[in-house]
Design a protein around this nucleic acid. Structure first.
Length: 408
RNA sequence: GUAGGCGUAGUUCAGUUGGUAGAGCACCUGUUUGUGGCACAGGUUGUCGCGGGUUCGAGCCCCGUCGCCUACCCCA
């Protein structure tokens, strides 16, 4: 038997409905904020991700589905969405345009990791990116949209917020952090020692208790922001306060992708296991220039669709549509033609074999239909149908034309 | 890559010290021949994940392998 690959799943039935529900809800919010849908390729040149996500990240180092194609191109399945949007932006020279660009996207992303709750090798992300807007109001708007999506899906969350500083203040901060860490090198775990050189900010969210104890007195980025970063961070908090979006500043919050700066945030749930981040994002003003574009401010977020699916429930559905069937072989061709007409404007299910009335009604229940339409011996003779509303239990026997007119 | 748990009918699971497999749900049929979601009665369904080994005999023990779940790592 051929099985699906590890960490790849088929989504069907109620799960598929839920998938659409999550994506459509997010879409509605984004459309109201005037974002455009961008459908991107799943396969890109590997270099794109090395340059944007960052060579030091695990995503690029060991989690990419990477291969050489028949044209000798080094390619990989996209592990995240932002890089692709940025590539599109630069490729089409939108960085030379004075106006702002806002996009949303959704679809499969691929990371070769061990699956666990809320994490798959092929997973779906819904994300958005805003280019050209440096105002912190846009950072706020992005967070507002994210919270609007979760509210719409009735998902409760904790919003964590931090600022990573800009290219002025962050390098200085990293230096002082490195200095602080060097003295403690032998007290830190193996991972932290590795991070120290590769990606020093990451030590701050180390989960080893003994490490965390050492970091209590570490310099905090939020205490070392330059004036402009500090002002923006205050402004952002003020905007959130004024609009009753609850948040916590987490001075140890960092993000895994190298391109972030200034505002970063995560919407976290404690109900879905260890992978609690449902939406994560922030500002990445440097990314476009990493990809040879003109320096362009940018901010966005990504939502894990499967994680949102774990947290939301489908709105209850009511009976709808028609279930049609015949009671005799002779009535079958009439019922088939009738079903065709019904399906022009309504959902309809059809029994291919003649069945007793009882079985047809059962079938209608199973199909979750609102109406059951039957042609039996009597109806066939008189050119009528037997129609029953399964919810109100009302019955009638209109002619076929009367019936079709009534459902138009 | 590492660790723990699990793989038995469509599904959820039970299977006692090894003696050739069971329940609920689902499904199908029937309960006076054209009235549903309930109740009752009956019925269908398994290479016990796969491959080896031990044994007279293995779902149960041993080895290997694949897969699933959870956690570490990392991240949405």
């Amino acid at each position: 038997m051929i099985q699906s690959l590890t960490g790849m799943q088929d989504i069907v039935g109620d799960e598929a409905k839920k998938y659409n529900y999550v994506v459509n809800s997010a879409k509605e919010v984004l459309e109201n904020y005037d974002f455009d849908f961008l459908k991107m390729p799943m396969l890109e040149k590997t270099e794109l991700f090395i340059r944007s996500v960052g060579g030091s990240s695990d995503i690029v180092n060991k989690e990419m589905y990477r291969f050489i194609d028949k044209g000798e191109n080094d390619v990989c399945l996209r592990p995240e969405g932002t890089a692709g949007v940025a590539r599109y932006f630069v490729q089409n020279k939108l960085d030379r345009q004075p106006q702002k660009f806002k996009f949303y996207y959704h679809g499969s992303m691929f990371r070769y990791e061990r699956p666990q709750k809320g994490r798959y090798r092929e997973f779906n992300q819904f994300g958005c990116e805003s280019f050209g807007e440096e105002s912190v109001y846009e950072d706020y708007a992005i967070i507002e949209m994210a919270s609007a999506i979760l509210d719409k899906l009735d998902i409760s969350y904790k919003l964590e917020l931090n600022s990573l500083g800009c290219k002025e203040c962050r390098p200085k901060y990293i230096e002082s952090l490195k200095e602080f860490l060097r003295d403690k090198k032998d007290k830190l775990c193996e991972d932290c020692n590795r991070r120290l050189e590769q990606n020093p900010l990451r030590v701050l969210d180390c989960k080893v208790q003994s490490c965390q104890a050492e970091y209590e007195d570490a310099p905090k980025i939020t205490d070392n922001l330059c004036e402009s970063c500090d002002t923006d961070f205050r402004k952002l908090k003020e905007l959130l306060d004024n609009n009753s979006i609850n948040y916590e500043v987490n001075k140890k919050l960092v993000r895994g992708l190298d391109y972030y700066n200034k505002t970063i945030f995560e919407f976290i749930s404690d109900k879905i296991g260890a992978q609690g981040t449902v939406i994560g994002g922030g500002r990445y003003d440097g990314l476009i220039s990493y990809l040879d574009g003109k320096e362009t401010p940018a901010v966005g977020f990504g939502m894990g669709v499967e994680r949102a699916m774990l947290l939301t429930s489908l709105p209850s559905t009511q009976n709808c549509g028609y279930h049609l069937g015949a009671m005799d072989e002779e009535a079958l061709s009439s019922i088939i033609s009738l079903t065709k007409s019904v399906r022009v404007s309504h959902k309809a299910t059809l029994e291919y074999k003649p069945k007793k009335l009882k079985a047809l009604l059962k079938g209608a229940d199973k199909a979750n239909a609102k109406y059951c339409v039957v042609i039996g011996e009597n109806e066939l003779k008189e050119g009528k149908v037997w129609l029953k509303d399964l919810v109100t239990k009302d019955e009638s026997t209109p002619t076929i034309d009367e019936f079709l007119n009534s459902i138009k």
